[in-house]
Amino acid sequence: MELNRRKFTNMLIGGGLLGWLASVLYPLFTYLIPPRVEEQSLNSVKAGKVDDFPPNSGKIIKFGRKPVLLIRTETGDFRAFSATCTHLDCIVQYREDTKHIWCACHNGMFDLTGKNIAGPPPRPLMPYGVRVQKNEIIIEKPTNLG
């Protein structure tokens, strides 16, 4: 009887301890596993493979919390600009027919250097840096522009 009680207590402690350890260690180890999303580096972002972008095309890339328009010109080089229109914050797009950057909201136009050339936008689009490394396109925050 006495022995059984003691056995029960030890089991209770053992079981409790195991469960407790599990409930402490589980969050701990999952915390240490690197999250699937790579830590968002604030100064550059990978946009994809060069082959995914045919010449004369554009695509919106999420640069952290800011949309960036990545353009591959007809001649094949890459350019990137802030995709936020300087007029009323709409998202601009690349137009394959006119080969311009275009904002659908008010028909604002920018040339391929980001300069505002028609419609209401008051300022050029801020350029981002583009680097190609081992067939991978990397968009960079322009350091000289702050």
């Binding site: 402690i13 409790g16 407790w20």
Partner: peptide, 23 residues
């Protein structure tokens, strides 16, 4: 919800230790 799990085991452990102490 996860907390309830953890607290269950913690409570068991506490009770176990308490009985042990009494013994």
């Amino acid at each position: 919800k996860g907390f309830l799990f953890a607290t269950l085991f913690t409570t068991l452990l506490i009770i176990g230790l308490f009985i042990k102490l009494r013994q």
